[in-house]
């Protein structure tokens, strides 16, 4: 029983947490792929930037969380999202749009986004240094609420372990997905986005204001990036190089789910997240209760894991390669760019 709880904590909970983060990042990436047709390498740094915006707000107004009974980081999140969205629009206007207007090959814009990544990273590290920061160690902010749920079984001495930021993350994801769904299916602007994603020339000729669609894309992408970055930092820690390690899994999630399909991005995020947790999990632990029933001549290794923990980064990548080789359109049949 305890082993199952351990499995639940290490795989299900952890996988859902990281999967939600990947999902939120991947939605932004896949939308930018669909509307602007390039791989936005700077997306992960947008996440870090959003997290830093939140952190600055928390330091400035630490008591805000107390009013509502929620962590301050979460309360200031909407503001950080807005700031990041504005920043993203500014990025596009300054760096990407001029290149688009010159009709360069999409690869050139990707290289430009690499340049943007480096600039954002440099600025963040300049102003914030390279140390880690904790959203819950700021003066005046309440500590992190951790819930330890005890199951009503006798054999279960271990508890299910989930933190408040994690619960907020799930709630936020569900809300965000719901809103996104409503937006894309019921509003004019959302439908215009879908039209542009399918056929930009036709969309333009049909009178759709492509500039507004582009801005909306960046607002959604930037806002979700800020949320993902903040919630991730609240779950673990805020570091300036938070970003680079997640860039690859997010791209993998977007491609696995099908480029240009927001729901695919969500599915892809969870696939990648669970793949990570499942592959580093020590399955030998689940076999322990059966130790006695296994014949003596079979020796159970103490550790059965597909991938040693140090090599965790390989997992999203292998998934990516597998999808590219077998089903480049991804789960939800997006574009193959």
């Amino acid at each position: 029983m305890n082993e199952l709880i351990f499995f639940f904590n290490k795989v299900i909970v952890a996988g859902s947490v990281i999967g939600s983060i990947y999902a939120m990042g991947a939605i932004g990436v896949t939308l930018v792929f669909a509307i602007l047709r390039f791989a936005h390498f700077a997306h992960a740094d947008l996440m870090t930037l959003g997290a830093f915006f939140s952190y600055i707000l928390v330091v400035a107004f630490p008591e805000l969380g107390g009013f509502v009974g929620l962590p301050t980081g979460f309360v200031v999140l909407p503001v950080a999202m807005v700031l990041t969205a504005i920043f993203a629009i500014g990025l596009d206007k300054t760096f990407y749009k001029p290149l688009r207007d010159k009709n360069v090959k999409p690869v050139v814009i990707v290289i430009a986004s690499v340049g943007v990544t480096l600039m954002i990273q440099g600025v963040i590290r300049l102003f914030a240094g390279t140390t880690s920061r904790n959203f819950f160690s700021v003066d005046g902010v309440a500590g992190k609420d951790i819930f330890r749920i005890k199951l009503p079984f006798e054999a279960a001495s271990r508890k299910i372990f989930i933190t408040e930021p994690q619960i907020l993350l799930f709630i936020f994801l569900i809300l965000a997905v719901g809103l996104l769904h409503y937006f894309l299916t019921r509003t004019r602007l959302g439908k215009a986005m879908r039209a542009m994603s399918d056929n930009p020339d036709l969309a333009r000729v049909s009178g759709i204001n492509t500039n507004v669609v582009v801005w909306t894309t960046w607002i959604i992408a930037g806002g979700l990036a800020a949320a993902a970055g903040t919630l991730l930092s609240m779950d673990v820690i805020l570091k300036p190089d938070l970003s680079f390690n997640i860039l690859l899994p997010i791209f993998a999630a977007a491609i696995v789910g099908g480029v240009g399909q927001p729901y695919g991005a969500i599915a892809g995020g969870f696939v990648v997240g669970f793949a990570e947790t499942l592959s580093v999990f020590n399955w030998a632990i689940l076999l322990r209760p059966f130790r006695d029933s296994i014949p003596e001549w079979i020796e159970l290794p103490s550790k059965i894991a597909f991938v040693p923990t140090e090599y965790k980064i390989i997992v999203p990548f292998v998934l990516l390669i597998a999808i590219l080789v077998w089903k480049p359109t991804g789960i939800f049949k997006g574009k193959v760019l």
Binding site: A39, F41, F251, A252, L337
Partner: peptide, 8 residues
């Protein structure tokens, strides 16, 4: 595949 994918 396209250059973006090669980059990733």
């Amino acid at each position: 595949l396209r250059s973006d994918y090669l980059a990733i």
